[in-house]
Design a protein around this nucleic acid. Sequence first.
DNA 1: ATATAATATTGCAATATTACGATGAAATCA
DNA 2: TGATTTCATCGTAATATTGCAATATTATAT
Lengths: 111, 111
Amino acid sequence: MGATKTDFYSEDQNKLSVIAKALGHPARIAIVDYLLKVDTCICGDIVSELPLAQATISQHLRELKNAELIKGTIEGTAICYCINKTTLNIFADYLSLVGQRLEMDKTNCCP
Amino acid sequence: MGATKTDFYSEDQNKLSVIAKALGHPARIAIVDYLLKVDTCICGDIVSELPLAQATISQHLRELKNAELIKGTIEGTAICYCINKTTLNIFADYLSLVGQRLEMDKTNCCP
DNA sequence: ATATAATATTGCAATATTACGATGAAATCA
DNA sequence: TGATTTCATCGTAATATTGCAATATTATAT
């Protein structure tokens, strides 16, 4: 066991969980935060920002890229990364939808 | 190895990643979706909705509860679960903040 | 061509997650 | 009381994740 039964779930459910999972590690949240802080796509210098080995960060970047949360373009010997707004919005939209639904039906729910 | 270095990251980063991680499985997204669909807190019948054993679902519910994404109250022999709006908003707010920042600085970023 | 810089990949160990059957605990009903 | 229902927990197996050192790859500079 230990393998997720993805077949049962809807496309949306699987997609959303992939995005959430990619954000489900503090290092990857930190990478997103850093990408935001530097106000432009970053070319290099992520490694010096985090207390992780270069190999580990490369791995985290790959997972963010697999989830399409970031995209990277080669720029000489460096690689420029930036946030993929489209993917981020998929998740943001989902959450705001859930939020709206919750506003509407405040049927006598758990206190 | 295999243990996350949570010490380095900010409280926010850790908290956000915990919430995201809890949503990082299609079964747990499906549970949230179901909680939303039934328009009230649900008492029972999650097990029949998903192709998972009762023990497994109980485990998923526990993780959602640990992340404070849902809360449950005992109701006779059943337990009523519903979404914890507060926690959900923490994540929704984070994403909309990121979204706003991305709108502002569209400095020549990766194409 | 060689050296250098930046990032990726591989291989591996430690740990975490996912899933299930079996069992346990608490409330309700006959 | 004993049976039933509902959910939680324990134990365990399969698989995934995390992190790093070592090595490979790719592009630039000399």
